Amino acid sequence: MLSSKHFKIANFVIFQLIWIAAVIFQSAGLWACILLLAIHFAISPERKADFLRTYKAILIGITLDFTLMQAGVYVFEGDYFPLWLVCLWIGFVLTLRHSMAWLAEKPLYWQIILGACGGTLSYLSGSRFGAVELGMGIWVTAIILVIAWGLLLPIFYRLVNRAHPHEQLA
Results as ranks from 00 to 15, higher is better:
residue 86 V to G: 06
residue 121 L to V: 15
residue 72 G to S: 02
residue 127 S to Q: 05
residue 67 T to R: 00
residue 170 A to L: 12
residue 1 M to Y: 02
residue 132 V to M: 12
residue 96 L to Q: 03
residue 170 A to N: 05
residue 81 F to Y: 06
residue 67 T to C: 03
residue 120 T to M: 00
residue 17 L to Q: 03
residue 167 E to Q: 13
residue 131 A to T: 02
residue 3 S to C: 08
residue 156 F to G: 07
residue 129 F to Y: 15
residue 34 I to N: 11
residue 111 Q to P: 13
residue 38 A to G: 14
residue 91 G to Y: 10
residue 7 F to N: 01
residue 167 E to V: 05
residue 79 D to P: 08
residue 72 G to K: 02
residue 160 V to P: 10
residue 47 R to H: 01
residue 37 L to R: 00
residue 133 E to N: 13
residue 22 A to C: 02
residue 21 A to G: 11
residue 99 S to A: 13
residue 17 L to I: 05
residue 90 I to V: 14
residue 36 L to Y: 02
residue 100 M to H: 10
residue 127 S to F: 03
residue 59 L to Y: 02
residue 166 H to Q: 12
residue 135 G to T: 00
residue 4 S to M: 11
residue 20 I to Y: 12
residue 121 L to F: 14
residue 169 L to I: 07
residue 68 L to A: 01
residue 90 I to R: 01
residue 162 R to D: 09
residue 154 P to T: 01
residue 154 P to E: 01
residue 107 P to N: 07
residue 115 G to I: 11
residue 18 I to D: 04
residue 103 L to Q: 09
residue 22 A to V: 04
residue 164 H to P: 00
residue 103 L to G: 10
residue 149 W to M: 03
residue 23 V to K: 01
residue 94 L to R: 08
residue 151 L to T: 12
residue 85 L to S: 03
residue 15 F to P: 02
residue 1 M to T: 07
residue 134 L to N: 01
residue 101 A to K: 11
residue 122 S to Q: 09
residue 101 A to T: 11
residue 64 L to T: 10
residue 31 W to K: 14
residue 83 L to V: 11
residue 144 I to F: 13
residue 66 F to A: 06
residue 105 E to T: 02
residue 147 I to H: 00
